[in-house]
Computed example of a mutant assay.
Amino acid sequence: MTASLSHRLRGAGALLALLAAGAVLSGCAGVSETIAPAFADPGAYELYDCKQLEAERKSLAARTEQLQKLMEKAETGAGGAVVSELAYRNDYVAVRGRAQLAEDAWRRNRCRETPPGAPAPASAPPQRPDIKPAPKPGSTNR
């Protein structure tokens, strides 16, 4: 009976340790939101135009949503808070930092959303310069 009690106490201790680690790590979540831009290159979107920024913002929003869902799913399992923090938090913070920088560039460039259903602005195809063939040796150009 003492072996069974000892086994239960060890299991309870391990569970308590996981819960404590989860509580400590989840306390970092609020802090990570404020330092997110530190995990992204501040000059990454300097040369982007509005069309590129719009695509990047949509991509980053989709990735943020995907990571949030993965973190929520991980938190439903045993030791989920720890798994969520270890597996997804760094990516989540980095993506949030990039999204914030892309949003800053969006506002700085005074970009506007493309209305749904509106055709994308057509870009002119590259023009080829008129190239005249070189004269053949011995011929005259008139």
Rank of each mutant, 00 (worst) to 15 (best):
A38M: 10
E75P: 00
A124R: 11
G13L: 03
S26W: 14
A78S: 08
G27K: 04
Y88H: 14
G79W: 03
T140M: 07
P135G: 06
H7L: 10
H7E: 07
R8N: 06
D104H: 08
F39S: 01
A74Q: 10
A81F: 03
T34M: 10
T34Q: 13
Y45H: 09
A36P: 04
G30S: 07
E54W: 12
T2A: 15
E85C: 08
E56S: 09
E56D: 05
A87P: 02
P129W: 03
L19P: 05
R57M: 11
A122H: 04
L15Q: 12
E65I: 00
P125Y: 04
V82H: 08
A94Q: 08
F39L: 10
Q100T: 00
A17V: 15
S59I: 04
S4V: 08
A23Y: 07
R10W: 14
E65C: 00
I35R: 10
R98W: 02
A38N: 05
A134G: 13
A118R: 13
L70H: 06
Y92H: 11
C111E: 04
N90A: 13
A94P: 01
H7G: 00
C111L: 09
A40N: 02
A81D: 15
D130H: 09
S4D: 13
L15N: 12
R10A: 13
V24C: 03
T64W: 00
A74K: 04
Y92F: 13
L16G: 11
P42A: 07
P116N: 05
P135T: 08
A105P: 00
Q68I: 06
S26N: 08
P135D: 06
A3V: 08
Q66W: 00
Q68C: 05
R96K: 15
Y48R: 01
E54I: 14
G117L: 07
Y48V: 01
R63F: 00
G22W: 05
R128S: 08
V93P: 03
P37Y: 00
Y92G: 03
D130P: 03
A134R: 11
C28K: 11
A12K: 09
E65H: 08
R10Q: 13
V83I: 15
I35L: 14
C28L: 15
P126F: 01
P121R: 12
